[in-house]
Computed example of a mutant assay.
Amino acid sequence: MARIVYCGGEFVAENEAKLSLFDRGFLFGDAVYEVTAVIGGKMVDNDLHLARLERSLSELSIPMPLSREEIEAIQLALIEKNALVEGTVYLQVSRGAEDRDFLYSDGLEPTFIAFTQVKNLLGSKGQKQGLSVNLAEDPRWERRDIKTVMLLGQVMAKRQAKATGFDDTWFFEDGAITEGASSSAFIVTHDRRIITRGNSKAILPGCTRAALLKLCSAHDVVLEERPFTIAEAQGAAEAFQTSATSLVTPIVRIGDVSLNGGVPGPVTRQLQAYYLETVNIPKAAG
């Protein structure tokens, strides 16, 4: 059975979906996207993702293609039509299509597409054993708070990480960590404080990050939102990253420095358990 996607205002088989050659998302990267995790057939933190989608579009003066309620109905329909149990729902909205010109016309109709992907989100090797991250100078534009489809910097960084024996990449700027190539970055100090960079134009306001911050508050976990240096990260007791697809994943090596003997630490394990409890998933093994 062909995967069913949403394109052109209707549900169609993926091999029948068509986009204009002149869509600005294709020609200019003039588009934003969101990815919502699906676990046990249910979406995780989707309200946060739809709110961020609306904010990103607003920052670029692109109108919402539909209301949040209508978009959620499409997401749920795609999950049902594709019998998705575990994976993601991807949304993308571009400014629309017209003949190529840097200056876009007023009143363009946004292009909205959506599709599901089957992915193993729970119990991955990274969640069990932790990941190693390369360090790379942040190559991205200044408005990283907008979740655009302009991801070439991240693509190249992840490719370089893999080629040099790392699992992923953390970016830095002026000696301080900004965030992961597709995740929010956290460290744990030796006195068990959680440190993560505060939201600004320098980083994407992560949805899983926001959910985890609420859990830290609810469980009286001390958390500081501030920049931290490469030296602080490599000298930390533990580290981890969050994203819709990696949930809460331990980081056991940063550059050439191993943390906590190269195994996930107890604070990270506890935070994993807190997060998984919110989506009614048993504690991860490891």
Rank of each mutant, 00 (worst) to 15 (best):
residue 4 I to D: 04
residue 7 C to A: 15
residue 8 G to F: 06
residue 9 G to K: 11
residue 11 F to C: 05
residue 12 V to N: 02
residue 16 E to D: 14
residue 17 A to Y: 07
residue 20 S to Q: 13
residue 20 S to T: 02
residue 22 F to Q: 14
residue 25 G to Y: 14
residue 31 A to F: 05
residue 31 A to V: 00
residue 36 T to K: 00
residue 38 V to C: 03
residue 38 V to G: 01
residue 40 G to T: 00
residue 43 M to P: 04
residue 45 D to Q: 11
residue 45 D to F: 04
residue 48 L to T: 00
residue 49 H to S: 05
residue 50 L to G: 00
residue 53 L to M: 14
residue 55 R to F: 11
residue 56 S to N: 03
residue 58 S to P: 03
residue 59 E to C: 13
residue 59 E to T: 08
residue 61 S to G: 06
residue 63 P to M: 03
residue 63 P to G: 03
residue 63 P to L: 04
residue 65 P to T: 00
residue 66 L to A: 04
residue 66 L to H: 01
residue 68 R to D: 11
residue 69 E to R: 09
residue 70 E to Q: 15
residue 73 A to D: 13
residue 73 A to L: 09
residue 74 I to D: 01
residue 76 L to C: 07
residue 76 L to Y: 13
residue 79 I to K: 03
residue 80 E to R: 15
residue 84 L to Y: 06
residue 85 V to K: 15
residue 88 T to L: 06
residue 100 R to A: 12
residue 103 L to H: 09
residue 103 L to F: 11
residue 105 S to D: 15
residue 106 D to Y: 07
residue 106 D to P: 03
residue 107 G to V: 08
residue 108 L to Y: 09
residue 110 P to M: 07
residue 111 T to S: 13
residue 116 T to R: 01
residue 118 V to F: 02
residue 121 L to T: 02
residue 122 L to M: 10
residue 123 G to R: 08
residue 125 K to Y: 06
residue 125 K to A: 13
residue 126 G to R: 03
residue 127 Q to W: 07
residue 128 K to E: 14
residue 128 K to P: 11
residue 128 K to W: 02
residue 131 L to A: 07
residue 138 D to Y: 11
residue 139 P to I: 12
residue 140 R to E: 12
residue 142 E to T: 10
residue 145 D to V: 08
residue 146 I to H: 10
residue 147 K to C: 09
residue 147 K to M: 12
residue 150 M to D: 15
residue 150 M to I: 10
residue 150 M to T: 14
residue 151 L to H: 12
residue 154 Q to T: 08
residue 158 K to S: 07
residue 160 Q to R: 11
residue 162 K to P: 02
residue 162 K to T: 06
residue 163 A to H: 00
residue 165 G to S: 08
residue 165 G to Y: 04
residue 168 D to Q: 04
residue 169 T to M: 03
residue 175 G to M: 12
residue 175 G to T: 11
residue 176 A to S: 12
residue 176 A to I: 13
residue 177 I to G: 01
residue 183 S to V: 11
residue 188 V to Q: 02
residue 193 R to S: 06
residue 197 R to P: 08
residue 200 S to Y: 08
residue 200 S to V: 06
residue 201 K to S: 13
residue 205 P to Q: 07
residue 205 P to T: 04
residue 207 C to S: 09
residue 213 L to H: 01
residue 217 S to Q: 15
residue 218 A to N: 11
residue 223 L to M: 12
residue 231 A to N: 05
residue 235 G to H: 11
residue 238 E to P: 15
residue 238 E to F: 15
residue 240 F to H: 09
residue 240 F to R: 09
residue 244 A to V: 03
residue 245 T to G: 09
residue 250 P to I: 07
residue 252 V to H: 07
residue 253 R to P: 05
residue 254 I to W: 03
residue 255 G to F: 08
residue 260 N to I: 00
residue 264 P to Y: 08
residue 264 P to M: 09
residue 266 P to C: 03
residue 268 T to D: 05
residue 270 Q to H: 11
residue 272 Q to I: 01
residue 273 A to N: 14
residue 274 Y to H: 06
residue 275 Y to L: 11
residue 279 V to R: 00
residue 280 N to S: 12
residue 280 N to M: 04
residue 281 I to C: 12
residue 281 I to N: 00
residue 284 A to G: 09
